[in-house]
Simulated scan of single mutants.
Amino acid sequence: MWARRKISVVESQPGQWCGTAIILVTVMSACAFLLSDSALPLLALANLPMLIQGSRLGSLKGILVVFALQLLMTSLFYLLLYGWQSLPQAALVVFRLLLALIPGWWLSARFAPEQLGSSLARVLPSKWAFVLAATLSLLPHIQREAMEIYRLQCLRGAPITKRALRNPKNWLELGPCLLFPLLIELMKLSRQQALAAKSRHFGTHPKPTHWQAPEDL
């Protein structure tokens, strides 16, 4: 994403679209937590084009799995703490989280990491721009890793298959069988990214240049 060779900055239309998309995604994700409950259907309708285009560019199954797992875990916590009457509130919380996740998921599928990094570096320090661009680019990888870990755990005999999860007693198995291994994998990946950035001397120059794909030149 970061090139050592000096490249002239060209204000291209894809870069302008990327900057506008970042602002739009930030506003929509914030609205998922700030809007009232009655306004959430309108926000969901606004997220629908992103969901459709994102499903064409990437995998929709991953985000559905994340939503299902989050719904199961949140419902379980609310059930244990507040009882059955709190389940609608748990579903509402997960729905807000989903509305906050969809814009970022669409952004990572629609724009390349180098476009995100270049646009973010215009308003943020280079290190923060790198961290945010790398985080957004990890979203598709998280989906793939979660599905791979899930398949391997099911082959191992873990009670987290669709049929096994019909029993609420098996919901607690999602933590040690899926969420914890995924967290460990993400920690390993973040360490590898940090090592790769350090080996390329990232951070030694206050204004690093950015790789530009041929279609953006």
Rank of each mutant, 00 (worst) to 15 (best):
W2H: 09
A3G: 02
R4Q: 02
R4W: 13
K6A: 01
I7F: 07
I7N: 05
S8Y: 09
S12P: 00
Q13I: 14
G15F: 04
Q16A: 04
W17K: 05
C18R: 02
I22M: 03
I23K: 11
V25F: 08
M28L: 03
C31M: 10
A32I: 07
L34A: 10
L35R: 06
D37T: 13
S38P: 04
A39H: 07
L40F: 07
L40D: 04
L43K: 01
A44F: 10
L45R: 14
A46G: 09
P49E: 09
Q53G: 00
G54V: 05
G54M: 12
S55K: 10
R56H: 07
L57G: 07
L57K: 10
S59T: 15
S59F: 11
L60D: 03
L60Y: 07
K61L: 12
K61Q: 09
L64N: 06
L64D: 10
V65N: 04
V65I: 13
V66K: 12
Q70F: 11
L71I: 14
S75T: 13
S75Y: 10
L76M: 15
L79I: 03
L79W: 14
L79R: 06
W84V: 07
W84M: 06
Q85A: 01
Q85F: 13
L87K: 10
A91H: 11
V94I: 15
F95Y: 12
